[in-house]
C-alpha cells in the first residue's frame, strides 16, 4: 500500500509517502528524523497486517510542510535523513 501522509493546500503539495509493501518496520527512520515526524507501529489502514510499519505521526500530519522545513533549505539541500537510512527505499517526499 502507498500511504500518503500530509496534505495539499493553496500553496502546494506536501506528502510523505510510505510504501508499506517495502517497509519492513525496522524503525531506523524514527531516530534519524530530528523532529520526530516518523513513528513505527501497527498498520492502521490494514487491520489484518501483523508486522509493524512506519508512518507519519498524527501530530505532524497536518503540518509537515513546517515540520520538515529545516531539512529542506532553499539552497544546498542535503539528502533527507529519513530517506537516507531507509534501506528498502520505502519513504518518498513529494516536495
Amino acid at each position: 500500500m502507498l500511504a500518503n501522509y500530509g496534505y495539499k493546500n493553496g500553496s502546494g503539495d506536501y506528502f510523505i509517502t510510505i510504501d508499506t509493501d517495502k517497509c519492513d518496520g525496522c524503525g531506523n527512520c524514527v531516530p534519524a528524523c530530528p523532529f520526530g515526524v516518523l513513528e513505527v507501529g501497527e498498520d492502521e489502514n490494514d487491520p489484518f497486517r501483523e508486522e509493524p510499519v512506519a508512518k507519519v505521526s498524527e501530530f505532524h500530519r497536518k503540518k509537515i510542510k513546517y515540520s520538515c522545513a529545516p531539512c529542506k533549505p532553499m539552497k544546498k539541500r542535503k539528502p533527507l535523513p529519513c530517506m537516507n537510512v531507509c534501506s528498502p527505499g520505502a519513504i518518498a517526499h513529494s516536495w
Binding site: M1, L2, A3, N4, Y5, G6, Y7, K8, N9, G10, F15, N45, D46, R61, K62, K63
Partner: peptide, 14 residues
C-alpha cells in the same frame, strides 16, 4: 476492497 494507495486531506477545508 483492500487499500493499495491512499491519501487524505484533513488539514485544509478546501
Amino acid at each position: 476492497g483492500k487499500v493499495t494507495n491512499f491519501l487524505m486531506n484533513d488539514k485544509c477545508a478546501a
